[in-house]
Design a protein around this nucleic acid. Structure first.
Lengths: 225, 225
DNA sequence: GCGTTTTTTTACGTATACGCTATTATCATG
DNA sequence: CATGATAATAGCGTATACGTAAAAAAACGC
């Protein structure tokens, strides 16, 4: 008899999840190469599911399969960052607009509000890791509220691609005080159904964030993350 | 001795290309299921490269791998169309804006202009297939000029997803006269570097196209394509 | 000692084999 | 005849095997 919530997760799925984790944690460093057989042994399975997982992660832009040279973990250049932030700006602004059109109640927006509250709290504590986590929650919740599964999938994918880079810039940037104010403004616009304001506020917020990050990378001469 | 341009294309790559073709041509109908072994035999290779190809196409949203039920070709609902057109609207508008910022010469925009000319010509001839092809060229060239490889990849992927549906609506819609005028306006805005106009014009163009298509699907009660 | 050719090795791409589970078919029973 | 239990089957998920081409190493000539 199986337990109720038990899902028979395949090795391929486990490989996908585990490889992602290894990439984000830096255990598989950006730019490094790894033999399929090494990864397979590392994950305690054969090459077959590892290769399938790698194919999936390849189309998500996290790594690259190179004949006879194994799997290469992709690094992110400032130019990649600009591309990604540009796309995130557009799609999240769309999400904000659509979210505002839905006529959500304060109750339905409580996760969004909670993320903002957590960010404020984290900022008071000067806990940047906690702030970043709450910021992620704000953005992903915003996208969820926009009700477009493609936008959700794409922003999640691009979020993955910049995760490593953001971990670096997090401690170089000024305290995100303005960022918190922006989020509050977006939240209020969504609550009162002002879709134009929601869109424009979030758009401006994202553009500022992009410029700030790119400026940081430039000044610190960070070419590859 | 190998010929110069000869590329040793792998079976997996061939499978990806061939499966796409079969999906677009309708030989693999939307919503239909296919055993991996059937597809493998059809393509003259073993299941291994077919599965890898299927994994790739799965993350591109063309099909789905279902345990013990084979590969299911995904169909596109009106709601999917709305989602996809919304994303295309945002990302192509961004591309138009960025293209206008590059300061391209008329020479560099000749492919874009050629696509417009071809559309006009096709319209005169009442050749809708040719028009659709030129329209595709316009949109993909516009995205190329926007110089963002993520936008390029995403719009190509979404374009694939709506290809079948568009083949149906093509002969239901009114003659795309306004569409051709819109394209001309976007082209001119890009040429004179008016990025705001380029963005707004293309955005409006895409939104109209979306509304028109969704209206068509609704009126003809087309729930699944 | 250095460049070039030959040999060896390595690691991928793909075919193949097989177990396991979901599904279907068969059959017993009320 | 319907329903549930049991057996048979099918088809995926994954391990394994192997050919091949590229890369590395070794041998060779200059």
């Amino acid at each position: 008899m199986n337990k109720q919530g038990e899902k028979p997760v395949s090795n391929t799925e486990r490989a996908i999840a585990e490889l992602r984790r290894l990439v984000f944690s830096g255990e598989l460093a950006a730019g490094s190469d790894h033999l399929e057989s090494e990864l397979a042994e590392m994950l305690g399975m054969s090459r077959t599911p590892v290769r399938e997982a790698a194919r999936t992660l390849e189309s998500q832009g996290l790594l690259e399969l190179r004949a006879r040279k194994g799997v290469r973990i992709l690094s992110v250049s400032p130019d990649d960052m600009r591309e990604i932030y540009d796309v995130l700006t557009e799609l999240e602004s769309l999400a904000a607009e659509r979210a505002a059109e839905q006529g959500y109640s304060a109750n339905e927006l409580q996760d969004l509000a909670a993320a903002i509250a957590d960010m404020d709290h984290a900022l008071d504590q000067r806990d940047l890791e906690a702030w970043a986590q709450a910021d992620d929650r704000f953005h992903s919740e915003l996208v969820r509220l926009g009700r477009n599964s493609r936008v959700l999938a794409i922003t999640a994918m691009l979020g993955d691609q910049v995760r490593r880079a953001r971990a670096v810039t997090l401690f170089m940037r000024p305290l995100p005080i303005q960022s918190n104010r922006d989020h509050q403004g977006v939240y209020e616009a969504i609550l009162r159904g002002d879709y134009t304001a929601a869109r424009n506020l979030h758009r401006a917020h994202r553009q500022q964030a992009r410029d700030m990050i790119l400026d940081l990378l430039e000044r610190h001469r960070l070419r590859q993350l």
